[in-house]
Design a protein around this nucleic acid. Structure first.
Lengths: 349, 349
DNA sequence: AGTTAGCACTCGCAATATTAGAGTGCTAAA
DNA sequence: TTTAGCACTCTAATATTGCGAGTGCTAACT
């Protein structure tokens, strides 16, 4: 491209973004000339600003205000200009304290989300994907409820519990259910959920000719349990905390926008789709403003990272805050948190 | 009291409140004289207003605005002046459609909360008290997790499931746990939770001299399960929906206040204490503005009612909205909803 | 070439004035 | 007790103004 950005222009953009992030005020040429550390006059800076404006990196709210970064400007900033500020030992200690290895995954996620929110003063989030690929079924158990409803309890990964209610065509006795569970446990326990869902059940169904009545029924129960994407667990796999902090930001004081954002949080659906997109990416990923494509996030940025064990992505965590956030601080926080969560999970395996 | 309020003054107060609720504008004497239907002049109304102001029923935001009701004025209005507006058949039908009898209590509560929020255009809430007195234990089951942790599963009321993780001093085999569960089931199943918690376990502990080792262990497990106020279920027994609607109200546009309110929603604690206070009351109960004593609710009113089966209060439901809400509509909605939920629960028993 | 100083110009913001209108309280008469 | 009349108060909306910040452009300088 002919429209390469010069060394100095880059540096000016960097200083401008930093200044704007700090003060929230448009940055004028005079101030910028002084703060840049460069030995140039305001007029020179103005020329550079004109160039940056042409490239869409900055814009002025109106004629006689300074410049503010555009989303594209922020993007350039985080991609190539930013100098991250490593965490202090103290901050790392705090996190370590929170990562108890002995809670359920839900509890772990909640405490990590809190930590992220607390450290960044924004909203923290942790997502556990619906089908964590490496999940293995430890145990299945049935319990009769009223009428033709049966409670199925799955223990997954030695740690997490999932309840599902299924409906059947007749009443079953506790003993019958016990028998069915025994059968299924012998066939399925220890397998990975993914396998159970897609392979094992099919296999069983196909070879069931010689089986007795009870087994047939056990299999069809299991199908019900595993088929549905588990509406309840679906809702539980995204934990958000500290949303209310977002109400403190100037740039989110528009009630309409804010309301849209909170409704999106309640729906969860849109946010989840967005996070799904991060699953493949490596390291810290950032959505700035409207890059996400979701209108409600227009004034926001998301900084996310996946956490993983043995190279296998287990989920996504990160923060949501106003576009004007302290990236140089937030990015290492998210990065380190993801790594420590990964480590903690690996250890508890 | 000498400061009795005259017939006419009452009527004027009523019309004033109604007008203010409709338009959100301070009501002046001229308008009020016309709308009241009374054949009096504005000056007369002004005199009456002066009296009402002295009694603390109304106040003017400033010298030359009309009057608006104070909390005390609202209180008088809802207590003795209000003429409720019964629900249309159509509205009742909608509710009936939502009250599926076959979901869990959690699901039922969620759908009722949605209904309340939708009908009133405010926030709906449903609370299931921690210890629903009439809950009886149907079944208890243990399942080994990793290390010294055991999952206890309670089935309550043929419908609801509760998981609790307990910690024990050594590993137990599935068979051992089975045995413990069998023992506990034979002793506890069918009992009311309240009894289990306070009486039965104590009783068992006291007479355990002749028992074998296993029983001892079973009892101490049960104690762990029932002792803790079940931190998880504690969080789950209050369902709020439509909070974001509150962001649309003029009177809640102060971000500080609003944030406080949403934080209270997240904490749940304060709100729950408030709802606890409604448990004894009969019929629809209303907190207006600062009557609740919680600062965050200063600009809000809560309209609640208990729902019950066989005269036994099972929980509280209601709505939260700005003090300036259409009480004559909201009150019957909450009232009828509570009655229909009661009926639905009685039927499903 | 790139850099700088100078300068006219634009724009937003805050402070100040002005006005219209709504509503009050009081007084005196009905 | 009620009413009409009237002076008064206060708000909210609408100009008017001056100030300061910051720009873009041009012409001179290195």
């Amino acid at each position: 491209m002919a429209e390469e950005i010069g060394e100095r222009a880059q540096h000016l953009l960097k200083v401008l973004v930093e200044s704007y992030i700090r003060n929230g005020q448009p940055v004028g040429s005079r101030l910028l000339a002084r703060d840049s550390g460069l030995d140039v006059s305001a007029a020179t800076v103005r020329n550079a600003m004109a160039d940056l404006e042409e490239l869409g990196m900055v814009s002025s709210p109106h004629t006689s205000a300074g410049r503010i970064p555009t989303n594209k400007g922020y993007r350039m900033f985080v991609d190539s200009l930013l100098t991250v500020k490593p965490l202090t030992d103290r901050e790392i200690m705090t996190l370590n304290g929170q990562l108890g290895v002995d809670g359920s995954n839900q509890e772990l996620a909640a405490s990590v989300s809190d930590y992220l929110a607390g450290m960044t003063e924004m909203a923290g989030m942790v997502m556990i994907p619906r089908t964590a690929k490496r999940s293995s079924l430890r145990h299945i158990e049935f319990m009769p409820l009223s009428d033709h409803r049966i409670l199925a309890i799955l223990v997954i990964n030695e740690k997490d519990v999932q309840n599902t209610v299924i409906r059947v065509d007749r009443q079953y006795t506790t003993a019958e259910l016990q028998q069915a569970a025994n059968f299924l446990n012998s066939e399925l326990a220890g397998r990975e959920l993914f396998d159970v869902r897609h392979r094992i059940l099919k296999e069983l169904r196909e070879t069931k000719d010689g089986m007795e009545q009870m087994m047939h029924q056990a299999i069809s129960m299991a199908e019900q349990v595993f088929e549905q994407p588990a509406s309840k667990s679906n809702a539980d796999d995204f934990i958000l905390s500290g949303q209310t902090r977002l109400m403190g930001f100037e740039e989110l004081s528009n009630m309409e926008k804010l309301r849209g954002l909170f409704e999106a949080f309640n729906e969860k659906q849109e946010i989840l789709q967005l996070l799904d997109r991060c699953l493949d990416g490596d390291g810290v990923q950032i959505f700035i403003g409207d890059e996400s494509g979701y209108g409600v996030l227009d004034e926001c940025s998301m900084v996310t990272s996946s956490y993983q064990v043995d190279g296998e992505v287990l989920g996504i965590l990160g923060v949501i805050g106003p576009t004007r956030m302290a990236y140089e601080r937030v990015i290492p926080i998210v990065d380190v948190t993801a790594k420590m969560v990964s480590a903690a999970l690996a250890q508890s395996k």
